[in-house]
Amino acid sequence: YGKVLIPVHLITSGVWFGMFYYAAIKGVNVVPFLELTGLPDSVVNILKNSQSGNALTAYALLKIAMPTQYTVTLGGTSFTVKYLRSHGYMSTPPPVKEYPQDRMEETKELLTEKLEETKDRLSEKLQETKGKASFKKKVE
C-alpha cells in the first residue's frame, strides 16, 4: 500500500491544510479552543502572541485534527487501492501460500521430534556410561 499511501497522505494533508488556512483567513481563532483543552500557557502563548497569522493558525488546526486526518488517509488509501485494482491499474497480490500459524505448527512438530531424538540418544549414552561404570566396579 506504500505506493498509494504516500500520495494519498500528501493530497489529504494539502486539502486539510487548505481548509484550515481558509478558516484562518475567515477569522477562526484557535486560541480559546487550545486554552479550553488545557494546553500549557507556553504553547498557547506562541499562537496568541504570534505575528505569523493564518499559516500558523492553520498549522495548529492541522495538528489538532491529526488523528482524524490519519483516519481519513487510511480510509482513502483503502478506497484508492480497491479502485485501482478494480480498474486494472494495480495488480492483486498473490494468495498467501503459507500462513505463519501453519509454519509454527510444522516447526513445533519438527522441534518435538528433534527433542525426542536427543532424549533417546542421551538415554543411550547414559546407559552406556552406567554399563561401563558398573563393569569397572566389577573388575576392581
Rank of each mutant, 00 (worst) to 15 (best):
R103T: 03
P94S: 06
T73A: 08
S86Q: 12
E98F: 14
F79E: 05
L61H: 03
G75D: 02
T57K: 12
Y89I: 01
E109Q: 15
S91I: 05
L111G: 05
E109C: 02
T112P: 00
R103G: 00
P100L: 03
M90S: 09
P100Y: 03
T71N: 09
Y99H: 15
K108F: 06
E109S: 06
K97I: 08
A65P: 04
S86L: 09
H87K: 14
L56E: 15
E98D: 03
Q101I: 15
F79M: 10
F79I: 08
E106P: 02
M90W: 12
S86M: 12
V72L: 13
M90R: 11
P94D: 06
T68A: 14
Y89P: 01
T57R: 13
L74W: 05
T68R: 13
L84H: 05
L56I: 06
L111Y: 13
H87T: 11
T92F: 10
M66I: 03
L61V: 09
G53Y: 12
T77W: 07
E106N: 13
T77D: 04
S86K: 15
L110N: 03
K63D: 00
Y83R: 05
A58L: 02
R103D: 00
T107G: 02
K82L: 09
S86R: 15
P93Y: 05
S91N: 13
F79A: 14
T57G: 01
E106H: 14
V96L: 12
T57N: 11
P93A: 12
Y59T: 13
E106T: 07
T57M: 11
P67L: 05
Y83D: 05
H87C: 07
K63L: 12
K63T: 01
G88S: 10
G53K: 13
L110A: 07
T92Y: 10
I64Y: 11
K63S: 01
A60W: 04
D102R: 07
L110Q: 05
P93E: 06
Y83W: 14
E109G: 00
G88P: 04
T57H: 04
Y83E: 06
R103E: 00
F79P: 00
A55Q: 09
Y70G: 00
V81A: 04
D102V: 09
V96D: 03
A55E: 06
L111H: 12
Q69D: 06
Y99L: 15
M104T: 01
H87E: 01
A58E: 01
T57L: 04
G76Y: 09
K63N: 03
E109P: 00
Q69N: 14
M66G: 03
K97N: 01
L111K: 14
G53E: 06
Y59K: 10
T107V: 01
G75E: 04
P93T: 08
E105R: 08
P94C: 01
S91K: 15
V72F: 13
G53A: 06
H87S: 11
V81G: 04
T57S: 08
V72I: 14
H87W: 04
M66W: 09
G88M: 07
G88F: 05
